[in-house]
Design a protein around this nucleic acid. Structure first.
Lengths: 106, 106
DNA sequence: AACAAATATCGTAATATTACGATATAATCT
DNA sequence: AGATTATATCGTAATATTACGATATTTGTT
């Protein structure tokens, strides 16, 4: 019928899948790369960097925020986004570990 | 309105997103882990390992195959799946590199 | 207070994903 | 050849994602 059977899988498997899903759009990859390139958190012009409408970018930002990968700090009238260091490191650890443990047989 | 604007992003960004998308379901994570756990390629009973119908598992296998992450070798009446070593290593490299290059600012 | 700027949310349309039963296909066995 | 087994594909329903215009919200400015 269509809805994911998440409850049938382990918490870790779901965590990995959720993380991968957060990265599963080129716009979100681009957003993370842009935030990373700025070495300060003075970012509020992400919309100008992407070929997408303000509403759509906001939606992608919300997806990254929900995954915990970025934070948004209110900075006057605008919002300064940045990578959530702690969550990012955890995500990196989780994914890296998964990537390494998958072994080939032939 | 609704279809991804893939062409507006770099090939690498799309490659990363496609790879992440292939991993963006717990069933596919579980399949990869199961294939990895078997140290030979005698795999054809993935359906029994998952709480999903044969048709659905086949669909997930097709997704992993399309992403290049697994191969299926015809082995008599059944099919023996295994991790595609070369493609997996490339994917691992691509993703690991991305994970490492994203830097936090605060 | 009125206005402008930045961002989020709503409503909605198009498309994609997930899931499964039914059926097709292909190989092996009797 | 006919039956059996393994896997893929089709059809379809439910749900999720992507995209954007319009509108709401929040904050700073005049």
């Amino acid at each position: 019928m269509g809805l994911s059977k998440k409850e049938s899988f382990s918490a870790r498997q779901n965590q990995l899948a959720d993380l991968a899903r957060a990265l599963a759009h080129p716009a979100r990859i681009a957003i993370l790369e842009y935030l990373s390139k700025q070495n300060a958190c003075i970012c509020g012009d992400i919309v100008d960097q992407l070929p997408l409408s303000q509403a759509t970018v906001s939606q992608h930002l919300a997806a990254l925020k929900q995954a915990g990968l970025i934070r948004g700090n209110i900075e006057g009238a605008s919002i300064s986004y940045c990578i959530n260091a702690k969550a990012w490191n955890e995500a990196k650890e989780l994914l890296s570990h998964f990537l390494v443990t998958i072994k080939q047989c032939c």
